[in-house]
Design a protein around this nucleic acid. Structure first.
Lengths: 195, 195
DNA sequence: TCAGACATGTAATAAGTTACATGATTAG
DNA sequence: CTAATCATGTAACTTATTACATGTCTGA
């Protein structure tokens, strides 16, 4: 499910221009999918080329034409087909966790600040997800509510884990000399640890 | 923090060959960072070119030479510099959640199977993370333990959320006609909903 | 007066995935 | 006999990010 397909899916709920879709990415989809204009505009152009959406341009003063996209029947069928057949993945790439993995090599003050910043981000994520579930989107469908709640639940769990376990990283520097190397073959002739 | 930098970091804990690093990615880093041979081998070559690691080749029968990489002092300094200065991101791209967002458009049986599969994946993730924390890695540093525990905690929370809230998605099909479109400009002349 | 919303797009760049290419040994 | 482990690499491809390019209107 790439940006192109996701745009097609969003258009199942009504016509929209690229700018509208971007806002949708920044609210509903924010905590599990990001897309910039640099992906969205080309995606819409491709969908139109493929006949999966139609496009009408509305002239505006002082702004580029507003191009409103509407899904076609072919587009709808294509999206439903993807929903039926795709094998959806769940990919996390966390530089934050990768950094904390090396806690032993980080100065305590720096580490503290990294954890605090992440906690702050998580609090914001919870607030945004809960706003989405409650006030701001009474018209949201069950799927939209479910994923917003999911985001809130996971962010809360992450924050709790950090608060409950960050002490395990304190003074990590004292045991910074791990014996490793654990090489897959036994024919190494060099010393194990280079630290 | 790209694959190249992460390989450099792993080499802080001792020398290793590309194959060894791949195994590390599949265990310790599995739940928050993936990398294939196609990223690792070129990364190691680049690190060697840049003088951040040394490489020695050990001939083997019936296999390519085993190339063992060792970090240099310059490499260590470079990695510590990255740890001090980088602004680590946390990026999730979940096709699973993107799919569930469209629950209303998915057949109930298919939706059930998607959720069950994801629950199975989460159970496996918890088991693997806990194995990492307890038995299999008594020599793991505090950072490694922390991130493994993090992975387990978050996966558990995700599974619990799904179990507790999946009923909200049942019969979602009945309300599949959402009025949306919510366009940013008021000058549209077309009907709101196209479903 | 200055930031932010509105509105679209292209081009260069970066990064990683997948498929291909090769082949012995070992455990089930 | 079959799959997995060990071991390295290249090349094509896909995808998305970032920077650039332009310009008005509105509210604080």
């Amino acid at each position: 499910m790439d940006v192109r397909t996701l745009c097609l899916g969003l258009l199942c709920y009504g016509e929209a221009c690229g700018y509208d879709l971007k806002k949708r990415f920044e609210t509903d989809l924010r905590h599990f999918y990001t897309a910039g204009f640099g992906s969205i505009y080309p995606a819409l152009a491709e969908l139109a080329d493929a006949g999966l959406v139609n496009c009408r341009a509305f002239p505006q003063e002082g702004k580029p034409d507003r191009k409103v996209y509407r899904i076609t029947e072919a587009g709808r069928q294509e999206f439903l087909r993807v929903l039926r057949t795709a094998n959806p993945q769940h990919k996390l790439r966390s530089e934050f966790l990768a950094t904390v993995y090396f806690a032993e090599l980080i100065e305590p003050e720096r580490l503290r600040s990294l954890l605090d910043e992440r906690l702050q981000q998580l609090r914001e994520a919870v607030a945004q997800a809960e706003a989405l579930t409650n006030e701001r989107e009474p018209d949201a469908g069950p799927g939209a509510r479910f994923v917003a709640g999911f985001g809130a639940a996971v962010a809360k769990a992450a924050a709790e884990y950090i608060n409950a376990n960050r002490h395990l990283l304190d003074r990590a520097q004292r045991r910074s000399r791990r014996a490793t190397g654990k090489s897959s073959s036994p024919d190494r002739t060099q010393a194990e640890s280079l630290i």
